[in-house]
Nucleic acid binder design. Structure first.
Lengths: 583, 583
DNA sequence: TTGTCTCCCTACGGGAGACAA
DNA sequence: TTGTCTCCCGTAGGGAGACAA
């Protein structure tokens, strides 16, 4: 069984609310009983080495399943939380029982659970045993201090995910006054082997009991490469989860666990799960929630809704991401720069098929390729205020060469089986849209405007995604539109509006929680900047993984990086430039 | 396979000479290819909990095997050496190939290997990082210091059993001058988790390379109970060899390994080995050499020779034991006080059937029950100089009740199958003795003299052990006899002499090495003290394990404890009263 | 508000001779 | 000869305010 790989890990389930707080509020575990899609590619991203799928007879790259069981667990060595999910493949899709999962629901704060995460600064992790407690954390999570004392001080008893108690001295001192954890903190840092960049999560439940969780950063020394997934040459060398380093001081110096962002799951477990799924047998998967490791078990409705959207190069999108302190959700905006086609056996997978150039170039570029359901459309009708001089010659010819490469014309999603499933489960009204006339191939290659990717869709894809084509004609948008100067080619007005703003939001809120809804509204009511790319503007590109859309070609050119996100005022980003995704 | 239990332990074989030095010179591993007996009881003594033999169909309690392979290994966690032996059961006994094992051979010092063991004092283990190097160790093992320096000092690079190097500063300083290890010693103590009572073994090979081994004491806190083995209620609770205690400082405090004298071997491995042996399938066993854990894989000749000896209550015996510094072998003398009969399924086993009251009451009583091949006969004809007033009434009646308990009369060794094998392999001359007339049962219950146990042997046993009965008539002894006051009832002159002094010595020297021969001679030429017991005097007792010969009944009464063993002048016993067997 | 610095106090590690068993 | 003590020094841990980002 797949369970063997984590056989001795995580004896008992955690309180789901505590688990969720440790995992981060952005993590969505579908409710038990719901219909989900399982994506082996996403599973493989969590493996310590590249799984060898050559033995898998089935060539499907996603599997419709019923989620029959979820265990909320924690790694005994690293304290990282993970979920073990039992899945039963479903050929046909019976009506899913309407059930809601605590973890899928929004904040969990309504349950009296509050949490605060902080990325450890070098001072927190290295120096003489002190931890700077952000004021918000002290005020909202810790019991109130008696400020009539001088200095105000108290002892905190905090349980970790293994119910081991840690004692900390919480003191409010210094000039100016600040909250600190002193005695006990050093023990904790050593015991948990924390380094700068790791996060601690302080959690208070409705009984005012305190808990502490840990999120590990991948050890610095190499950028976290999660930009894309290629089935062949998975980068990381196998890092066995060795428990060595119990030797004397002279020998090994290891910490006893890997900090690799992969490495928690055995490659064999992925292959096994995929094999079992292909045989329509029940199987188990283990999911470690991490920023940059999106869920690979996703609600059926979420996936299918996302695939109804007419994603194309130049589409303006936004992606919700929780702040590092897990207190809020922020949206980041960008432009679809590339439609990725994976290598076999995942040619037909929608997993991470959209490559996005993010507006905030510095912090977000490491997550370049995302899956459609991670994105929301930005409902903007951008006004092209100034023509942008093309820095490079439009590569129309080259892209057409690319299209004619290989075996036949590339398609957006060539997954006929998936499409079939999508269509089976579609609600009738969606089918009532008009079919957009085909035959637009190569119609307008104006660098100032974006042709829909559907221009390149062959007939079969048009038949499979009728509503996508139709949506290209639906308008108008109701969102506020930025009046800031926009550089480059934004999506053409009227050609990118989502078919149904409501349906997008519905699933978006499913995916990202209620906070995301509120936040998205905020963003929509805020100013909106748009960036373009110099190359792929107006040119839908279907790129193979190996060929790729490398950054040289995409060439992001931010014009202005000041952007008033009111939501970020309480962020706990470490100031020394740790990549956002590592927190 | 039995190997699974130690699957990840001990990757590679050590140099057998280093292994032997770490194990102690008293350890004898039979040579590969030789015929041996395997005793599951001895194997079970090394298990972490009482093996459950109920599933073992075969009721044999020992197995004639060929030793087909030996690996000399070291535990990666504790540094303790152990041997993995592969055994092939043999129904018939072909001529064993004459081969000698390095480890079975005597000192190993002829190979240029020298070693010195020291029991760590509290100062060595606890205090501010120093180790008092005995002068002999510094002179014989360490490279010579340049005594013209002031102070003389050098750096020692010493490899442990995993080839990890440890650096020590060796200095000769203080008034009066003494050898010390300073810098590096504290690291070593912490790294190896040494405590007072543990031993370190410094070893020099013929290339003058230095090695260090570790022998662990059972954690003080309870006396080491290895006095006897009962199949049913094995005392120790299961102490899983957990690698926990990787947690923070607040939680568990474990060391990562058990200091239990049992605990290295899984009970299931013992059952598995016994099961396979019973099916005449090859199997593997792991043996951890420890004082008090005698070898359970013993050369066939050694066992059979020992069983030819007419052991009986009152027999004067001696047992060789190496000094704690492994530099010498010392003999301890005592009197057989009890013949133990085990509970099923080991009723027919010779394992630890002899209970001995040792002359040196304080240091040796913890090893009360021994196997015949661990003992040598003392060829003495003790003179009873003063009648000893019985402190307790002779429990003749009670003992006779005990004899009539259970299913029929108890026997010396009721192991018909073993006897058969012994007889098959016996050399013809041994069979040429006369059969002693039977029917002496209950003849003389004189507390001043010891009746031979053979008095109680039923006919079947007489047939199996003809030479034992015959030996009761063989005399005289040629040994020196003590003129010290002897208390209690010693064995009657003329009734205990061994049939062949030479044969006893031959196997004795096989078992304990050449040094034992020399040493034994020394002892024989020294004065000889004899002690008796107040209870079992003159009463051959066959006791069941559960009923036992408890100490209250046996009641050792030493009269004089000064005993000039010249061999002990260089001992490294810690002075604070650690039991001898724990070193 | 909070990250980092420096100061400074204390505890502990550990190296030395004194001294005694 | 060597176990243990006490002394004493150096370093590291860590708790405090200063100061600046």
């Amino acid at each position: 069984m797949a369970a063997a790989e984590a056989a001795e890990k995580g004896r008992e389930s955690l309180d789901p609310l505590i688990w969720k707080a440790c995992a981060g509020s952005g993590v969505r575990i579908p409710p038990v009983g719901s219909l989900v899609y399982y994506f082996p590619q996403g599973h493989a991203e969590q493996a310590s080495a590249a799984p060898d799928f050559s033995s898998v007879a089935c060539d499907r790259s996603f599997f419709l399943c019923t989620l029959v069981n979820v265990q909320f667990l924690a790694d005994p060595d690293t304290d990282e939380v993970f979920a073990r999910m039992r899945l039963e493949p479903r050929i046909s899709a019976p009506a899913p029982p309407p059930e809601r999962s605590v973890v899928e629901d929004g904040e969990g704060k309504g349950d009296g659970v509050a949490s605060f995460a902080k990325v450890l600064t070098p001072s927190d992790a290295n120096n003489g045993g002190g931890f700077s407690v952000p004021r918000f954390c002290a005020d909202s999570i810790f019991p109130p201090l008696d400020y009539s004392d001088d200095p105000p001080v108290q002892s905190l008893k905090i349980l970790d995910v293994h119910s081991t108690q840690w004692d900390f001295r919480h003191i409010y001192r210094g000039t100016p006054r600040r909250h600190l954890l002193t005695t006990g903190w050093s023990n904790f840092v050593n015991g948990k082997k924390l380094v700068a960049g790791d996060s601690v999560v302080f959690i208070k439940n409705k009984f005012e009991e305190l808990f502490v969780g840990v999120r590990r950063t991948a050890r610095s020394g190499g950028p976290l490469d999660i930009s894309g997934y290629s089935a062949k040459p998975l980068i990381d060398p196998p890092t066995p989860f060795s428990r060595a380093a119990k030797r004397g001081a002279n020998s090994g110096s290891g910490e006893g666990f890997s900090r690799n962002c992969r490495g928690r799951v055995l490659p064999e477990a992925v292959v096994e799960a995929t094999t079992l799924a292909g045989l329509d047998h029940p199987f188990e998967v283990v999911y470690y929630p991490r920023v940059g490791s999106p869920e690979f078990v996703v609600r059926k409705e979420v996936v299918e809704a996302a695939l109804r959207v007419p994603w194309s190069t130049g589409t303006r999108v936004k992606m919700a991401m929780e702040t590092v302190d897990s207190s809020r959700i922020t949206s980041f905006q960008g432009t679809v720069s590339c439609i990725v086609q994976h290598s076999p056996p995942f040619s037909y997978s929608p997993w991470r098929t959209l490559e996005v150039t993010w507006d905030e170039a510095d912090v977000f570029q490491t997550v370049k390729r995302v899956s459609p359901w991670q994105l929301e459309l930005v409902s903007a009708t951008p006004q092209i205020l100034t023509p942008y001089p093309a820095m490079k010659k439009p590569r129309t010819a080259q892209n057409q060469e690319l299209l004619s490469d290989g075996a036949g014309p590339s398609t957006f999603f060539r997954m006929s089986d998936f499409s079939t499933m999508v269509m089976e489960s579609m609600s009738p009204p969606i089918f009532s849209h008009n079919i957009f006339p085909a035959g637009m191939q190569g119609a307008r290659h104006n660098p100032m405007c974006v042709s829909s990717l559907s221009n390149f869709l062959p007939d079969i894809t048009l038949r499979m995604y009728p509503e996508k084509l139709n949506s290209n004609n639906s308008l108008p948008t109701t969102s506020h539109v930025s009046t800031e100067l926009s550089i480059g080619c934004a999506s053409q007005s009227g050609s990118l509006s989502p078919p149904s703003q409501n349906s997008i939001y519905y699933y978006g809120s499913e995916l990202f929680g209620n906070a995301a809804v509120n936040n998205s509204s905020n963003v929509m009511n805020s100013s909106l900047r748009l960036f373009g790319t110099t190359i792929h503007i107006g040119q839908p590109v279907i790129a193979d993984d190996k060929e790729g859309c490398n950054n040289n070609a995409v060439s992001v050119r931010p014009y202005s990086i000041s952007f008033p996100y009111p939501q970020r005022q309480f962020h706990d980003d470490p100031p020394q430039g740790l990549p956002f995704v590592e927190t």
